Computed example of a mutant assay.
Amino acid sequence: MSEELLEQLEEWHEEDEFEEIVDAIMEIPEEERDYVLISHLGRAMNNLERYDEAVELFLSIQDEGKDDPLWHYRIGLAYYYLDRYEDARRAFEVADHLEPGDEDTLEFLEWIRSKTAPKPAEQPIVMSHADPDVLNFWDDRALAADQYTSAPPSDDLIESVEEALVFKLPASYIQAMKLHNGGIPRNRKFPIGDGAQEYIEISGILGIGRDKKKSLCGSLGSRYMIESGGYPEIGVVICDCPSASEVVMLDYRSSGNDGEPEVVHVDKANDYKITRLATNFDAFLGGLS
Protein backbone atom coordinates (compact mmCIF):
# COMPACT_ATOMS: atom_id res chain seq x y z
CA MET A 1 0.00 0.00 0.00
CA SER A 2 1.52 3.29 -1.11
CA GLU A 3 1.87 6.43 0.96
CA GLU A 4 0.38 8.29 -1.99
CA LEU A 5 -2.85 6.29 -1.69
CA LEU A 6 -3.07 6.93 2.06
CA GLU A 7 -2.55 10.65 1.53
CA GLN A 8 -5.29 10.62 -1.12
CA LEU A 9 -7.70 8.79 1.21
CA GLU A 10 -7.09 11.36 3.94
CA GLU A 11 -7.56 14.20 1.48
CA TRP A 12 -10.89 12.76 0.32
CA HIS A 13 -11.93 12.33 3.94
CA GLU A 14 -11.18 15.98 4.72
CA GLU A 15 -13.18 17.04 1.64
CA ASP A 16 -16.14 14.76 2.56
CA GLU A 17 -15.60 12.76 -0.63
CA PHE A 18 -16.54 9.48 1.03
CA GLU A 19 -17.80 7.76 -2.11
CA GLU A 20 -14.38 8.33 -3.67
CA ILE A 21 -12.80 6.51 -0.73
CA VAL A 22 -15.17 3.56 -1.09
CA ASP A 23 -14.67 3.32 -4.86
CA ALA A 24 -10.87 3.46 -4.60
CA ILE A 25 -10.61 0.79 -1.90
CA MET A 26 -13.19 -1.50 -3.51
CA GLU A 27 -11.02 -1.55 -6.66
CA ILE A 28 -8.26 -3.21 -4.62
CA PRO A 29 -8.64 -7.02 -4.48
CA GLU A 30 -10.15 -8.09 -1.17
CA GLU A 31 -7.17 -10.27 -0.25
CA GLU A 32 -4.89 -7.24 -0.59
CA ARG A 33 -6.86 -4.98 1.76
CA ASP A 34 -5.04 -4.72 5.07
CA TYR A 35 -6.08 -3.36 8.46
CA VAL A 36 -5.42 0.25 7.51
CA LEU A 37 -7.41 0.09 4.27
CA ILE A 38 -10.37 -1.67 5.87
CA SER A 39 -10.31 0.91 8.67
CA HIS A 40 -10.51 3.68 6.07
CA LEU A 41 -13.32 1.86 4.30
CA GLY A 42 -15.28 1.36 7.53
CA ARG A 43 -14.87 5.03 8.45
CA ALA A 44 -16.18 6.05 5.02
CA MET A 45 -19.17 3.72 5.43
CA ASN A 46 -19.95 5.41 8.75
CA ASN A 47 -19.80 8.82 7.11
CA LEU A 48 -22.15 7.59 4.38
CA GLU A 49 -24.53 6.30 7.08
CA ARG A 50 -24.07 2.72 5.85
CA TYR A 51 -23.68 1.52 9.41
CA ASP A 52 -24.50 -2.17 8.92
CA GLU A 53 -21.74 -2.45 6.32
CA ALA A 54 -19.37 -0.55 8.59
CA VAL A 55 -19.97 -3.00 11.45
CA GLU A 56 -19.24 -5.96 9.16
CA LEU A 57 -16.00 -4.37 8.03
CA PHE A 58 -14.82 -3.55 11.54
CA LEU A 59 -15.69 -7.04 12.81
CA SER A 60 -13.57 -8.52 10.00
CA ILE A 61 -10.48 -6.87 11.60
CA GLN A 62 -11.58 -7.31 15.21
CA ASP A 63 -8.46 -9.19 16.32
CA GLU A 64 -6.13 -6.55 14.93
CA GLY A 65 -8.24 -3.73 16.33
CA LYS A 66 -8.58 -4.92 19.92
CA ASP A 67 -5.84 -2.56 21.15
CA ASP A 68 -6.69 0.33 18.82
CA PRO A 69 -8.94 2.99 20.42
CA LEU A 70 -9.99 4.20 16.95
CA TRP A 71 -11.31 0.75 16.04
CA HIS A 72 -13.47 0.68 19.17
CA TYR A 73 -14.61 4.28 18.62
CA ARG A 74 -15.59 3.70 15.00
CA ILE A 75 -17.51 0.49 15.59
CA GLY A 76 -19.12 2.15 18.63
CA LEU A 77 -20.30 4.99 16.40
CA ALA A 78 -21.84 2.51 13.94
CA TYR A 79 -23.59 0.65 16.78
CA TYR A 80 -24.89 3.94 18.19
CA TYR A 81 -26.58 5.00 14.98
CA LEU A 82 -28.04 1.52 14.61
CA ASP A 83 -29.64 2.07 18.05
CA ARG A 84 -27.55 -0.78 19.48
CA TYR A 85 -26.76 1.25 22.56
CA GLU A 86 -25.35 -1.50 24.77
CA ASP A 87 -22.92 -2.61 22.05
CA ALA A 88 -22.02 1.03 21.51
CA ARG A 89 -21.49 1.64 25.21
CA ARG A 90 -19.10 -1.30 25.53
CA ALA A 91 -17.11 -0.14 22.50
CA PHE A 92 -16.82 3.46 23.70
CA GLU A 93 -15.87 2.34 27.21
CA VAL A 94 -12.97 0.32 25.78
CA ALA A 95 -11.98 3.28 23.60
CA ASP A 96 -11.98 5.49 26.68
CA HIS A 97 -9.87 2.96 28.57
CA LEU A 98 -7.31 2.82 25.75
CA GLU A 99 -7.30 6.59 25.18
CA PRO A 100 -8.67 8.29 28.30
CA GLY A 101 -10.30 11.68 28.08
CA ASP A 102 -11.12 11.81 24.37
CA GLU A 103 -13.94 14.37 24.15
CA ASP A 104 -15.82 12.68 21.29
CA THR A 105 -15.80 9.33 23.08
CA LEU A 106 -17.02 10.88 26.33
CA GLU A 107 -19.75 12.74 24.46
CA PHE A 108 -21.08 9.53 22.91
CA LEU A 109 -21.04 7.85 26.32
CA GLU A 110 -23.07 10.74 27.72
CA TRP A 111 -25.58 10.51 24.87
CA ILE A 112 -25.95 6.78 25.48
CA ARG A 113 -26.57 7.38 29.18
CA SER A 114 -29.18 9.98 28.27
CA LYS A 115 -30.94 7.64 25.86
CA THR A 116 -30.93 4.58 28.10
CA ALA A 117 -31.53 6.12 31.53
CA PRO A 118 -35.14 6.12 32.81
CA LYS A 119 -36.61 9.59 32.44
CA PRO A 120 -39.62 11.21 34.07
CA ALA A 121 -42.39 12.01 31.63
CA GLU A 122 -41.77 15.36 30.00
CA GLN A 123 -44.74 17.71 29.88
CA PRO A 124 -44.88 19.37 26.48
CA ILE A 125 -46.50 22.70 25.79
CA VAL A 126 -49.67 22.14 23.77
CA MET A 127 -50.44 25.28 21.82
CA SER A 128 -54.09 25.41 20.84
CA HIS A 129 -56.18 28.29 19.55
CA ALA A 130 -58.26 28.08 22.71
CA ASP A 131 -55.27 28.28 25.01
CA PRO A 132 -54.75 31.87 26.29
CA ASP A 133 -51.13 31.01 27.10
CA VAL A 134 -50.33 30.97 23.38
CA LEU A 135 -50.32 34.77 23.32
CA ASN A 136 -48.47 34.98 26.63
CA PHE A 137 -45.69 32.76 25.29
CA TRP A 138 -44.48 35.38 22.80
CA ASP A 139 -43.16 38.87 23.41
CA ASP A 140 -44.52 40.65 20.34
CA ARG A 141 -43.54 44.03 21.76
CA ALA A 142 -39.83 43.22 21.65
CA LEU A 143 -37.94 45.55 19.31
CA ALA A 144 -36.58 42.72 17.15
CA ALA A 145 -39.79 40.65 17.04
CA ASP A 146 -40.61 41.75 13.48
CA GLN A 147 -37.37 40.19 12.19
CA TYR A 148 -38.69 36.74 13.18
CA THR A 149 -42.48 36.83 12.90
CA SER A 150 -44.33 35.99 9.68
CA ALA A 151 -47.89 35.12 8.74
CA PRO A 152 -48.85 31.47 9.39
CA PRO A 153 -47.24 29.25 6.72
CA SER A 154 -49.27 27.48 4.05
CA ASP A 155 -48.81 23.77 3.46
CA ASP A 156 -47.09 24.58 0.14
CA LEU A 157 -44.64 26.92 1.87
CA ILE A 158 -43.87 24.32 4.53
CA GLU A 159 -43.19 21.73 1.85
CA SER A 160 -40.90 24.04 -0.13
CA VAL A 161 -38.95 25.07 3.00
CA GLU A 162 -38.48 21.42 3.99
CA GLU A 163 -37.25 20.68 0.47
CA ALA A 164 -34.74 23.53 0.66
CA LEU A 165 -33.52 22.43 4.09
CA VAL A 166 -33.49 18.70 3.16
CA PHE A 167 -35.10 17.90 6.52
CA LYS A 168 -38.70 17.15 7.50
CA LEU A 169 -39.75 19.58 10.21
CA PRO A 170 -41.29 18.10 13.39
CA ALA A 171 -45.09 18.13 13.53
CA SER A 172 -44.97 19.96 16.88
CA TYR A 173 -42.81 22.72 15.38
CA ILE A 174 -45.15 23.10 12.39
CA GLN A 175 -48.18 23.22 14.71
CA ALA A 176 -46.59 25.95 16.81
CA MET A 177 -45.59 27.99 13.74
CA LYS A 178 -49.11 27.77 12.29
CA LEU A 179 -50.31 29.47 15.47
CA HIS A 180 -47.50 32.03 15.71
CA ASN A 181 -44.87 31.83 13.00
CA GLY A 182 -41.60 32.63 14.72
CA GLY A 183 -40.84 35.33 17.22
CA ILE A 184 -39.24 36.16 20.54
CA PRO A 185 -40.48 34.15 23.54
CA ARG A 186 -40.98 35.85 26.88
CA ASN A 187 -38.97 33.07 28.50
CA ARG A 188 -35.67 32.60 26.74
CA LYS A 189 -33.48 30.56 29.10
CA PHE A 190 -33.07 26.80 29.05
CA PRO A 191 -31.34 25.06 31.98
CA ILE A 192 -28.37 22.78 31.38
CA GLY A 193 -26.31 20.71 33.79
CA ASP A 194 -27.16 20.25 37.45
CA GLY A 195 -26.47 23.74 38.70
CA ALA A 196 -29.40 26.11 39.10
CA GLN A 197 -27.36 28.91 37.52
CA GLU A 198 -26.40 26.97 34.40
CA TYR A 199 -28.46 27.76 31.33
CA ILE A 200 -28.28 28.76 27.69
CA GLU A 201 -30.20 31.74 26.37
CA ILE A 202 -31.88 32.19 23.00
CA SER A 203 -32.70 35.43 21.18
CA GLY A 204 -35.65 34.14 19.17
CA ILE A 205 -37.24 31.21 17.35
CA LEU A 206 -37.05 31.15 13.55
CA GLY A 207 -40.38 30.81 11.73
CA ILE A 208 -41.17 28.88 8.56
CA GLY A 209 -40.56 31.11 5.57
CA ARG A 210 -38.17 33.13 3.44
CA ASP A 211 -39.30 36.75 3.64
CA LYS A 212 -38.21 37.60 7.16
CA LYS A 213 -34.45 37.76 7.72
CA LYS A 214 -34.64 35.44 10.71
CA SER A 215 -36.90 32.78 9.22
CA LEU A 216 -35.64 29.30 8.37
CA CYS A 217 -34.84 30.18 4.75
CA GLY A 218 -34.37 33.91 5.29
CA SER A 219 -31.17 35.83 4.61
CA LEU A 220 -30.06 35.26 8.23
CA GLY A 221 -31.71 31.85 8.53
CA SER A 222 -30.57 28.30 9.13
CA ARG A 223 -28.33 27.80 6.09
CA TYR A 224 -26.72 31.21 6.52
CA MET A 225 -25.86 30.54 10.16
CA ILE A 226 -24.52 27.05 9.46
CA GLU A 227 -22.37 28.14 6.52
CA SER A 228 -21.12 31.44 7.92
CA GLY A 229 -20.48 30.01 11.37
CA GLY A 230 -19.08 26.66 10.29
CA TYR A 231 -21.63 24.80 12.43
CA PRO A 232 -21.95 21.02 12.01
CA GLU A 233 -24.28 19.73 9.30
CA ILE A 234 -26.54 17.86 11.72
CA GLY A 235 -29.87 19.50 10.98
CA VAL A 236 -31.66 22.85 11.15
CA VAL A 237 -30.93 25.98 13.19
CA ILE A 238 -34.18 27.05 14.89
CA CYS A 239 -32.88 29.62 17.41
CA ASP A 240 -30.13 32.19 17.43
CA CYS A 241 -28.56 33.34 20.68
CA PRO A 242 -27.29 36.63 22.14
CA SER A 243 -23.78 35.30 21.58
CA ALA A 244 -22.97 35.07 17.87
CA SER A 245 -21.02 31.87 18.57
CA GLU A 246 -24.03 29.85 19.76
CA VAL A 247 -27.13 28.38 18.11
CA VAL A 248 -29.90 25.93 18.97
CA MET A 249 -30.53 23.23 16.37
CA LEU A 250 -32.81 20.36 15.52
CA ASP A 251 -30.42 17.39 15.53
CA TYR A 252 -31.33 14.63 13.06
CA ARG A 253 -28.28 12.40 13.55
CA SER A 254 -30.18 9.71 15.42
CA SER A 255 -33.54 10.03 13.70
CA GLY A 256 -32.59 10.51 10.06
CA ASN A 257 -33.78 13.42 7.91
CA ASP A 258 -37.44 12.37 8.12
CA GLY A 259 -37.52 11.42 11.82
CA GLU A 260 -38.18 13.21 15.09
CA PRO A 261 -35.06 15.27 15.88
CA GLU A 262 -33.63 16.10 19.27
CA VAL A 263 -32.92 19.73 20.21
CA VAL A 264 -29.29 20.62 20.91
CA HIS A 265 -27.15 23.66 21.71
CA VAL A 266 -23.95 24.15 19.67
CA ASP A 267 -21.17 26.32 21.09
CA LYS A 268 -18.75 27.44 18.37
CA ALA A 269 -16.45 29.15 20.89
CA ASN A 270 -16.05 25.85 22.76
CA ASP A 271 -14.85 23.83 19.76
CA TYR A 272 -18.43 23.43 18.51
CA LYS A 273 -19.46 21.53 21.61
CA ILE A 274 -22.91 19.95 21.22
CA THR A 275 -25.13 19.81 24.31
CA ARG A 276 -28.42 17.92 24.20
CA LEU A 277 -31.28 20.05 25.51
CA ALA A 278 -34.47 18.09 24.88
CA THR A 279 -35.78 14.96 23.20
CA ASN A 280 -38.09 16.96 20.93
CA PHE A 281 -39.29 20.47 20.12
CA ASP A 282 -42.29 20.33 22.48
CA ALA A 283 -40.03 19.41 25.39
CA PHE A 284 -37.70 22.27 24.45
CA LEU A 285 -40.52 24.80 24.56
CA GLY A 286 -41.67 23.36 27.85
CA GLY A 287 -38.21 23.81 29.36
CA LEU A 288 -37.84 27.52 28.59
CA SER A 289 -38.01 29.69 31.68
Score class of each variant (00 low, 15 high):
residue 205 I to W: 08
residue 261 P to F: 08
residue 261 P to C: 10
residue 219 S to N: 07
residue 226 I to M: 15
residue 272 Y to N: 15
residue 266 V to R: 07
residue 268 K to C: 10
residue 260 E to I: 11
residue 215 S to K: 04
residue 245 S to R: 12
residue 228 S to Y: 06
residue 225 M to S: 03
residue 242 P to S: 05
residue 254 S to D: 15
residue 234 I to H: 07
residue 230 G to Q: 06
residue 213 K to P: 01
residue 213 K to L: 10
residue 232 P to K: 02
residue 207 G to K: 03
residue 230 G to C: 08
residue 242 P to L: 06
residue 219 S to T: 12
residue 270 N to M: 11
residue 242 P to Q: 10
residue 256 G to V: 06
residue 244 A to T: 13
residue 208 I to E: 07
residue 233 E to L: 13
residue 248 V to S: 01
residue 221 G to Y: 03
residue 214 K to M: 15
residue 252 Y to C: 01
residue 218 G to R: 11
residue 265 H to V: 02
residue 240 D to F: 00
residue 268 K to P: 00
residue 201 E to L: 02
residue 250 L to C: 04
residue 209 G to C: 11
residue 222 S to E: 01
residue 227 E to W: 02
residue 265 H to A: 10
residue 254 S to M: 13
residue 266 V to H: 09
residue 252 Y to H: 09
residue 260 E to Y: 01
residue 219 S to Q: 11
residue 229 G to N: 04
residue 273 K to H: 14
residue 246 E to P: 00
residue 250 L to A: 06
residue 222 S to W: 00
residue 209 G to W: 05
residue 249 M to S: 05
residue 215 S to V: 02
residue 244 A to I: 14
residue 201 E to Y: 05
residue 224 Y to R: 10
residue 241 C to S: 15
residue 226 I to T: 12
residue 270 N to A: 14
residue 254 S to V: 06
residue 240 D to H: 14
residue 242 P to Y: 02
residue 258 D to M: 11
residue 214 K to V: 04
residue 227 E to V: 06
residue 264 V to Y: 03
residue 261 P to V: 10
residue 206 L to E: 11
residue 242 P to A: 11
residue 207 G to I: 08
residue 229 G to A: 07
residue 267 D to Q: 13
residue 211 D to I: 11
residue 210 R to M: 06
residue 220 L to K: 12
residue 210 R to V: 05
residue 202 I to S: 04
residue 216 L to C: 06
residue 238 I to H: 05
residue 244 A to E: 14
residue 215 S to G: 06
residue 231 Y to R: 09
residue 200 I to S: 02
residue 239 C to K: 07
residue 207 G to A: 05
residue 203 S to N: 12
residue 246 E to Q: 14
residue 225 M to K: 15
residue 259 G to N: 09
residue 265 H to T: 03
residue 262 E to P: 00
residue 271 D to P: 01
residue 216 L to P: 09
residue 218 G to Q: 12
residue 249 M to A: 14
residue 231 Y to L: 14
residue 265 H to R: 03
residue 249 M to P: 03
residue 270 N to I: 04
residue 207 G to L: 05
residue 228 S to D: 10
residue 230 G to P: 01
residue 232 P to I: 03
residue 210 R to F: 12
residue 254 S to P: 00
residue 220 L to T: 05
residue 204 G to F: 02
residue 206 L to P: 00
